[in-house]
Amino acid sequence: MRDKLGTIGARTGFFRNNYKITPGLYCIGEPSTTSPVVVTANYKLSFDTLRQGLVGVNAWLLVIDTRGINVWCAAGKGTFSAEEIAYQVHKANLDQIVTHREVLLPQLSANGVAAHELKKLCGFRGRFGPILAADLPKFLQAGEADEDMRTVTFTLRERAVLIPLEICMLWKQLSVVALIIFILSGISPDFFSPTLAFNRGILLVFATLTAMFAGAVATPLLLPWLPFRQFWLKGAIMGSLASLLLLFIGWQSLGDIEKIAICLWTISSSAYLAMNFTGSTPFTSLSGVAKEMRNGLIFQIGSAILALIFWIAGPFV
């Protein structure tokens, strides 16, 4: 139960940086001197996935210190490295525990670990296993990974589990934006009206929440089916649909200029959030993200500023 709560915590970002496992050697089943040694990161979800994937297998689990970051990201940041693996191999006296001289590395650690350097550092040869822990039993049985095991995927389920964190990391930004919205919404011909601030502000905040849904929930889920390759364009499409929905469900009280403001705001916010999702996918290159951001940010900032100008102008026309 506490474990399940912990997973929810890690997925939603509460104390996100505190889901660490103590580094060192762990047992799965009843490993012997000839059992395989599997290396992983000391992030709770990495450790759990591996434990679940290896049910029914006897193996040693060498958890290295990646400061609570998952395998792929830690490898990218340089903490999942040959040096760190060698350090943990020595610390656990692995050469006295097993008779073979091989450790199995997750394939996605390859951007941080040069397997051919590992032997020089600790006497153990590094061998890349499959991408998914769930494929490990099959890999151990067959002795090699097939093309499917070596190809990264991004299924609906894999996208869905990322969404809570996408949303939960936004609360801080959202509260700042909401505060600004309430202040700007109150600007009136009589200088400032608290009633307007609340009544109009709540509408724009609602539009912002709708944009969050469009850009950070709907866009990731519908990712492969949305047109365009640039994420901000995918987000702009979902934002446009969301703003049409907003206009459709009423807002009769709004003037035309405010309706335009709502649309522009929703589209630009959704485009921005969709663009942010690039960092969570396993197929976007940094060069590509930088390229789309050069176009995307200009559109988003321009259209957000225009939206706010129109919104402020609302009570004056």
Partner: peptide, 10 residues
């Protein structure tokens, strides 16, 4: 390399 996310690029 750093991190492939938009905030890192910004």
């Amino acid at each position: 390399d750093g991190c492939g996310c938009a905030s890192y690029i910004i």
